[in-house]
Amino acid sequence: MGDIVGGLVFLVFALLTVFSAFMVVSSKNIIHSALFLALSFVGVASLYVLMDADFLAAVQILVYGGAVAIMVVFGVMLTLRAGKVQESNPDSRNAVFGAIAALLTFVTFALVLFSNENWRVLADQSGMPSTVGDISWLLLTKFMVPFEVAAVLLTIAMIGAIILAKGVEDSK
């Protein structure tokens, strides 16, 4: 019974995620694309919850569902020209080749995935209790230097984005 409920919940959220990802790339209105992107991020967060990754699910909703989605919507609004919202997300002339390449990549992935015996692992009952403590343990011991580098990278990216978007004024 627990298997059936777990499978159904996974199916619902996986379908939500994949469907909204499909709408992101197939919608002709880029505002719809941006909103479906936010829905897809929330779907991925629910998949994290199903995989016992509670901290990552919270981070996913905060960073992706909150910050990145809003930033993308702002970017769309700032670069949209009036009067052609319905056709604001057209395909380029390479769309057919892109579709073929993506399809072949997916077939390759699926073949590898279903032919690998070592990956046929089903979920066990003994889930992780809470991941925050062990994530912080790794971040502050083994991954301390990458952690600091990530902080520096975020600062530099923020300054760079402000300078790029605002433009440098002439000093007199």
Partner: peptide
């Protein structure tokens, strides 16, 4: 893999940089 391939298709076939 599905998410990745939809993303791949979008990167190849969209005109709008956003």
């Amino acid at each position: 893999a599905m998410l990745f391939c939809f993303g791949l298709y979008g990167v190849f076939s969209k005109k709008n940089a956003i």
